[in-house]
């Protein structure tokens, strides 16, 4: 059984910047007749942490949901860890098992205990025996610092705890990529920090992460690159320092001035 240190080592050694984890080329998507994503090009290498920000309706959530095919793109290509996303169901299930996702509203399974939430993927997708799955689950619950809640149901936890369980549930699949879709937007202010701390800790292990968030503090501390989207397009991408201190595009400047003015 691997310890957290070994696990961290596994991720770190995989964090080889020459290895492309996600490659999106000339990707378009429509909702009906509404052109929601326009000519998206994005390459994410192993170990990279990318924060995607932008006004609501700019397509940032839709973009990361395309990566595990919760949304279907209509044009262009998306390759995840060498596998192209097509209609092939087996392909999709394989990619999903390698890509973890954390949702705004947690989406824990309310009829299962915290532990069962975490063992479900390893047992039914990875086909691990129950005791092994439970070992993994407890390890990650410890990592997000709530092993003592393992036998509770999600409804008995606070929002912040639920979101940390959701992170643990994804990690139990030992994914190569983690997607975060506004993970702190549904939380009370008091609980945002505990989730961000968990994410920061994960970022330090070298996990490949794509994070849609409005938490600019997190972007500054953890991101390798920040991407700004508006109207379905990627307007600007840059390292956090130049992105925040010296934005190039007028739309970016306006957005930053609005969210940073408080």
């Amino acid at each position: 059984m691997a310890t957290i240190e070994e696990d961290t080592e596994r991720i770190r050694s995989a964090a080889d910047s020459s290895r492309v984890m996600v490659e999106i080329q000339a990707m378009h998507k429509w909702f009906g007749t509404f052109h929601v994503l326009k000519d998206i090009n994005l390459r994410v290498t192993a170990g990279e942490r990318i924060v995607i920000c932008g006004p609501s309706g700019s397509g940032k959530s839709t973009l990361i949901r395309c990566i595990n095919r919760l949304e279907v793109h209509q044009q262009g290509s998306i390759v995840v860890d060498g596998i192209e996303l097509t209609r092939d169901v087996k392909n999709i299930e394989q990619i999903r098992s390698e890509v973890g996702m954390v949702f705004q509203h947690f989406n824990l399974f309310p009829h299962l205990t915290v532990l069962e939430n975490c063992t479900l993927g390893p047992m039914w997708v990875r086909k691990l025996p129950k005791d092994e799955a439970e070992d993994i689950a407890l390890r990650y619950l410890e990592r997000v610092q709530i092993p003592e809640q393992a036998d509770k149901y999600p409804g008995q936890l606070s929002g912040g705890q639920q979101q940390r369980v959701a992170i643990a549930r994804s990690l139990c699949m030992q994914p190569k990529i983690m997607l975060f879709d506004e993970p702190t937007s549904a939380l009370d202010p008091e609980m945002i920090k505990e989730v961000l701390d968990t994410m920061l800790e994960l970022a330090e292990t070298g996990m490949t992460m794509l994070v849609v968030t409005h938490e600019m503090g997190f972007a500054r501390r953890a991101a390798d690159r920040v991407i700004f989207m508006d109207g379905g397009e990627i307007i600007e991408k840059n390292a956090p320092e130049p992105f925040f201190n010296n934005p190039q595009n007028d739309r970016t400047k306006l957005f930053l001035s609005q969210i940073l003015s408080h």
Binding site: E93, F109, H111, L120, R169
Partner: peptide
């Protein structure tokens, strides 16, 4: 059942029948 439940099950890589049997049908 909220769409999020289906999406969370999907995002773990569960197949249709596993998703139905383990997540959606019990609820």
């Amino acid at each position: 059942i909220s769409r999020g439940q289906y999406e969370a099950a999907d995002s773990l890589g569960l197949s249709y029948w596993k998703k139905t049997w383990l997540i959606t049908l019990p609820q």
